[in-house]
Amino acid sequence: MLVGYMRVSKADGSQTTDLQRDALLAEGVAADALYEDRASGKKEDRPELAACLKSLRHGDTLVVWKLDRLGRDLRHLVNIVHDLTQRSIGLKVLTGQGAAIDTTTASGKLVFGIFAALAEFERELISERTIAGLAAARARGRKGGRPYKMTPAKIRLAMASMGQPDTNVSDLCRELGITRQTLYRHVSPAGELREAGNRLLSQSGTRSK
């Protein structure tokens, strides 16, 4: 069975799927087997795509007008086709740069294999750059990861405030720009310093009394 998927970027009616619909119908996709989204290509929430992929069964073929109608990016596209392949579902692209892709044929599988290899190459490059960047930072005495949201100054304010019976914890967290979890990890409800708070103060050269 052939199942078609269409997408336009704007939901205000300024773009239509007429061209895609005509091409899919001409390819042999039944009108009741067409799925349509009106959303940006970068948008993750595409309910009709999710419904389309869920409806596909062993031996079916997903037909799209162009590759950019289907995936958000190369990695997303590779993941979709990998999932389809695992389920013995084909993918056919009718036009554009991906028109040679038809995973129901040997040559089409070869073309898509090149796409998959490029996506894997991209992932490895990103990983290598990240590792190299962290190593360079460590060599300069810096550690990787996110900076602390809690600071020694915030800890001292939290200790003083938490010791007051009229302190509103939500207001305090909002004022300090931290979450309750972060607050309680460093300071107890009674305003006493906890291990994480003591460690942060020690690292900054400030000892608690």
Rank of each mutant, 00 (worst) to 15 (best):
V111H: 11
L34W: 01
D102G: 03
M159W: 02
R199E: 14
P165Q: 04
A116P: 08
R156K: 15
Y5A: 05
T85D: 14
L201R: 04
R46F: 03
R194D: 09
Q20Y: 00
L77E: 00
A116I: 08
Q164T: 10
G205Y: 01
T206Y: 02
D45Y: 03
G163C: 10
D60H: 12
S9W: 03
E44F: 07
A119S: 15
A132Q: 13
L77K: 05
T103K: 02
R46S: 09
K42Q: 12
A51C: 03
Q164C: 11
N79P: 08
M6T: 08
M159I: 13
A33W: 00
R180D: 10
S170Y: 06
G28M: 09
L172K: 09
A30L: 12
L172D: 07
G108C: 05
V64W: 00
A31N: 08
V169E: 06
C52E: 00
G197Q: 04
G4W: 00
L200F: 04
L49A: 10
S88C: 09
I80G: 06
L74Y: 05
Q15T: 13
S204N: 12
A39R: 11
K66T: 11
V111N: 10
V169L: 01
T179K: 04
I80W: 03
A132H: 12
L2E: 11
E120N: 11
T105V: 05
A117G: 11
T167R: 03
K42E: 13
S204G: 07
K66G: 05
Y184H: 08
A137Q: 05
E36A: 15
D12G: 08
Q97Y: 00
V187L: 07
L25P: 10
G98P: 02
V63S: 00
S107I: 09
D60S: 04
R207W: 03
A117Q: 14
V64I: 06
G98N: 01
P47S: 04
R38A: 15
R140L: 13
I126Q: 07
R207Y: 08
R46G: 05
S170G: 07
A99S: 14
E122C: 11
A160R: 13
D12N: 14
T206H: 09
S127N: 13
I155M: 06
G13H: 09
G41Y: 00
R199A: 15
R87T: 13
S9Y: 02
Q86C: 07
A190R: 14
L2M: 09
L74M: 13
V29R: 03
R72Y: 02
G113H: 08
L183D: 07
L53F: 04
R185K: 15
V8T: 01
D18V: 15
L19T: 15
G177D: 11
L74Q: 12
D73I: 06
P165L: 06
V78L: 04
S88W: 00
V8P: 01
E120G: 09
A132M: 10
S161D: 08
